[in-house]
Structures are given as C-alpha cells and as structure tokens.
C-alpha cells in the first residue's frame, strides 16, 4: 500500500493546515493581498476587486455581495481609510462567520451515532476511515457501518480503512438494504457499548428522490432502535465543488438535519471558499477538514487558523 510506504512526517496541526492550505492561499488570498497592497485608497474599484477575488474563490455571487456590503458598513462605522485596515476588518468578519459553536464536538463525550452523507465521490468512505482512526486514537470505542451497499467494492474499501484504524466494522453484501446494515450496526453498538458509531452511506445526488428517501429510512431506524444515542449527521463536501455545494447541503439538511460539514480535498488548489458560502447561507459549521489521503490527514476545523493561514503573506 502506497500510503503506508509514503512515510509521512508527523507534522504539527498548524503546519499541516498551512501545508494543506498553502495552495488555497496562493489561489485566492494572494490575489486578495495584491488587492490590499495595490490600492492606496478605498474606492468602488477596490470593493469590486475584492468581490471578484471572492467569487473566484467559490464564495459565490450572493455571499460575496453580502460580505462586501458588510465590509462597507464596517469600514464606514470604523472610519477606516487605509486598504490594510480593511484587510483586518475582512479577516475578522470571516473568522466570525466561520466560528464553530462550542458544542460542536460534544458528541465525543456521549454515546453517539454519526451518519456521514454526501454526493458521489466527495470522500465519504475515506472520511469515515480517518474519523475512526482519529477517535480510536483518542481512546474511544469506535464502530463503523458500511451502509454503502450500492457502489461496487465500497464495502471492501471501508473494510481496509477499518483495519488501518483498528476498529470493528459491520457490513453486508452489495445490494442489500442499507437500512438493515444500519439496524445491525446500531444493535451491535448498543451491545458492545460503543462510544461512537460512524455510518458510511452511499453517495447520492441530492436531487434523486428515492435515494434521499432511503436516507430518511436509515435515520428512522436509528431513531427507533437507539433513541438515547446522541445523533449527528454530517455532510461531506468536496472543497473543489462550486456553488452546487450549497444545494447539496440544503437538500441533505432538509432530509437529515445536518449538524456539521466535513470539507475534504483541501490539499488541492481549490479555494475552499464554498465553505464560507455554505456557512453564510445555511449556518452549518465546518467541523473537520481533510487535507490528504493518509489516516492522519483530517483535522478539526479551526476558523482562526483557517482565515489567518489564508491571509499569510507569501514569504517562503
């Protein structure tokens, strides 16, 4: 396995985030910095350039517009004249927007069931694998459920991850009813006194009604079989995705009440700005970000460092 061959240096959280985000920074915010440095005064062109940069970072037309309006207001209120002052304001605004609520990680201290949902190919199975590894390392008793019974070999993929993470897996053959896998998993979790049950589900396009119904059914099974469990549903979003991610989050939210977002593939050049848009429109916090293919390449989302890292000057 190449992943084990590729010896990964153990890097600190900030380093990893910075490495993962360095491309993001180059893509979107180096442009932003150029704007701040390139203007001597704050005028319409200045705002327009910032807005363009945000749109190019997948923040979206709507959210970008709102951010600019807010920024204008704040600049007026604070009587700011210098573009660099505007930079700090924008920085703080984004941090505030991306703040993770205090109870976001409460599930760690309770018996919880976490459903991982998302469209095809965003990295759900990989995320479940990484989460399992992470929680196991934190001393939790973890169980994973392979409720993706549709995609060819999804089961085998998760089985491999469960081996790497050293956790138990509940699975069934391709084509079986995923709700039955969830049923088995929930009962196993209860019997084995598992701390966290992670359910990997099949990728589904959010506009496919049947598949969304199937998701509802899986949730019902958990509600019925394990009423006292702490429940969370997280949507996995690919950082490369454009504005469609908002639709994805919205649709999944309407079916399954989302509590969080896992933003994957943050190690590419994708700007990750879509997270800002989703947070702005739907107020669903990003809880984790994925920054690579290794089992350690998943970190808690830290808005302070996220935004700071975005604004760091290119020095190296």
């Amino acid at each position: 396995m190449a992943e084990t061959e590729k010896v990964k240096e153990k890097t600190g959280f900030f380093e990893k985030l910075k490495n993962g985000l360095s491309k993001t920074r180059k893509g979107m915010m180096s442009g932003l910095n150029a704007v701040f440095h390139g203007f001597s005064e704050i005028d319409d062109d200045f705002y327009e350039e910032i807005e363009e940069m945000l749109v190019m970072g997948d923040v979206g037309v709507k959210t970008s517009g709102e951010i600019i309006e807010e920024l204008k207001k704040a600049i007026k209120e604070n009587k700011i004249k210098e573009p660099m002052g505007a930079r700090e304001l924008l920085c703080n605004m984004l941090k505030e927007k991306m703040a993770v609520p205090g109870d976001a990680y409460d599930f760690e201290n309770q018996k919880s069931v976490i459903m991982i949902v998302g469209v095809n190919g965003v990295g759900k199975t990989t995320t479940v694998g990484k989460l399992a590894g992470r929680m196991k390392e934190n001393g939790k008793k973890v169980l994973v459920a392979a409720a993706d019974t549709f995609r060819a070999a999804a089961n085998e993929q998760l089985t491999e991850w469960s081996k790497r993470a050293g956790v138990d897996i509940i699975s069934s053959g391709e084509g079986t009813d995923p709700a039955s896998v969830v049923f088995d998993a929930v009962n196993a979790a209860k019997a084995r006194k598992t701390d966290v049950l992670l359910c990997d589900t099949a990728g589904r396009l959010h506009n496919k009604k049947n598949l969304m119904e199937e998701l509802r059914k899986m949730n019902k099974v958990v509600d019925r079989e394990y009423p006292d469990a702490h429940r969370e549903t997280w949507v996995v979003l690919d950082a490369t995705t454009g504005q469609n991610a908002i639709n994805q989050a919205r649709e999944f939210d309407s079916v399954a009440d989302l509590n969080g977002i896992v933003l994957t593939k943050m190690d590419g050049t994708a700007k990750g700005g879509i997270a800002i848009a989703v947070m702005n429109e739907l107020n669903i916090p990003v809880k984790y970000i994925g920054v690579g293919e290794g089992i350690d390449d998943l970190e808690r989302f830290n808005p302070e460092e996220f935004v700071d890292a975005l604004f760091i000057n290119e020095e190296e």
Partner: peptide
C-alpha cells in the same frame, strides 16, 4: 466532475 467550481480551469490546465 460537472459540479466543480472555479478551480476546474486550474485542474484542466495543469
């Protein structure tokens, strides 16, 4: 992926 955002051009170009 048809859902790719602004980054699609970078990916394709690279």
């Amino acid at each position: 992926d048809a859902m790719t955002g602004q980054d699609a051009v970078n990916v394709a170009t690279e």
